[in-house]
Amino acid sequence: MEIAHDVNVKLLFFAQSKELAGTKESTIRLPNKISYSKLLNIIVESYNLQAIKNNILLAKNEEVCDEDIDIEIRERDSIAVIPPISGG
């Protein structure tokens, strides 16, 4: 069993998630390895995003995270909460 080192990451919110979270940016402490669903739950719980939980994606360092692979997190990574997009 690996020892989980907590790391600080930057959280970014956009559009609807920004309005629900009430902030554009935040910092959160996370273990350096975490499953997608766990991470999603933590963020949804901490930032009042239950209403759009099923419609958001998480992106780490501008890459959308794969839901089936554990996410490895390092210091100063940024994690973005991506609600359904509507560009154009």
Binding site: A15, E19, N54, N55, L57, A59, P83, I85, S86, G87
Partner: peptide
């Protein structure tokens, strides 16, 4: 492309739009 659009109406609450092409789900 992660860009979001909010429509602001005359009288109604503003709404964040969702593209039907959006593959996010």
């Amino acid at each position: 492309v992660p860009i979001w659009k909010k429509e602001v109406y005359d009288g109604d609450e503003p709404v964040w739009k969702e593209n039907v092409e959006c593959t996010i789900d």
